[in-house]
Simulated assay, not measured.
Amino acid sequence: MANPVLRTKLDSGTFFVVPGIQDMIAAVVANKVGFDLVYGTGYWLTASAHGLPDAGIVTYTEMRERMATLVRTSNAAVIADGDTGYGGLLNVHHTVRGYEAAGVTAIQIEDQEFPKKCGHTPFRRVIPVEEMVEKIKVACAAREDKRNFLVIARTDARQSEGFDGAMRRIEAYARAGADVLFPEALESEEEMARACAAFDLPMMANMSNGGSSPVPVADVLAQIGYAFAIYPSLTSLAAAAAMEKALVDLKTKGIGQPEGLFSFSEFCSLIGFEDVWAFERQWGKRAD
């Protein structure tokens, strides 16, 4: 059974934020901070594991394994990026079944051609709306937990078909049975407000730092009408900036012990070493 926390939060009508998780270090830090929902981001899980762009290169099998690892590591429920469903209708069915079995709480499926590209990069192409409608219907039918395992329908049509074209697609996806609507890469707060006002279903915002959309503070997003927002790039870009500074200081100044490092002893605890040490105390060989 899927974790009901996402459904419960949506039913409450209170806006909430969901951090993106790119690796298991970010997952355990999010555990410490205390989020009850996290987002398994395709772009950043691909970058962290393989050093590759989010361009449909990583396979369903590889991504499902990463999502399962995130579910195991995180204390929070996981919203998972399912790309295009990794192919046609049979692939969508297989992807939904696999992600649900892996323990995720919701799957996001988009209307790009397969293989897809990151929603804030050029050269994206979308499939006909009728094909995406069938994908959503298949995804909804494939899930076992009809109430708590949610299907998020994303359109990438804003750049190729304009705002009105993207809204026509979202309307079709809502009729097809999607639980949450996700118009990607809207270009202004005005567009965001118009999109949210047009539909009764929950609307998800993607706050992609450096992307096509503005990144207002959470209170503004709530006023606009979003149900929640994901922040897929936040931890990754923050970590990359901190790592670059530390490495530059090491190379140019020889500083190997800078101020502001995360506590090594605390990180050992977060990652589970205390359990290892307890095992050693109980079962390890003792000197006579």
Rank of each mutant, 00 (worst) to 15 (best):
P115C: 10
V104D: 04
S233L: 12
G98V: 04
V151K: 02
K285M: 14
G34V: 08
M63A: 01
A185F: 02
E131M: 15
G260D: 09
R125G: 13
Q108S: 08
A197W: 08
E244F: 11
A106L: 03
D164N: 14
A198W: 00
W283L: 14
S263V: 08
T61C: 05
L234H: 10
V92T: 00
A178M: 09
A222R: 05
V133T: 13
T8Y: 05
H94T: 00
G88K: 11
K146G: 00
L45W: 00
G254C: 13
S269R: 03
A197R: 09
S269C: 04
K32S: 08
F16A: 01
V129S: 15
K135D: 07
L89N: 00
F262K: 06
D275N: 13
A141G: 05
R66K: 14
A166S: 10
D249W: 03
A278Q: 15
V220E: 05
I79S: 04
G165P: 10
M167T: 01
T14H: 11
I255L: 11
H94E: 00
S74Q: 04
R281C: 07
V92I: 01
A195T: 09
D200C: 03
L6I: 02
A240Y: 15
E184D: 14
D145M: 09
K9I: 05
D81M: 12
A157Y: 09
S265N: 06
L89R: 00
E62K: 04
M243S: 12
P258S: 14
A26H: 08
G254Q: 12
F264H: 13
A238V: 10
V28G: 03
A68M: 14
F273C: 08
T59M: 02
A76E: 05
G210V: 09
R175P: 04
V248Q: 06
K32C: 04
R64A: 13
R281H: 10
E171G: 12
G260M: 07
A68L: 15
G177N: 12
A76Y: 07
A178V: 08
I25G: 04
Q282K: 14
V220N: 03
S74H: 11
K146C: 03
A239F: 12
M207P: 07
A174C: 06
A197K: 09
S188R: 02
G260H: 07
G177K: 10
T121N: 13
A185G: 03
L261W: 12
P258T: 07
P115M: 06
E134N: 15
V180F: 09
G162H: 08
P216L: 02
G42L: 04
R124T: 12
G254I: 13
P202F: 06
S48Y: 11
V18D: 05
M203C: 13
T61D: 11
M203H: 10
P19V: 09
L270S: 02
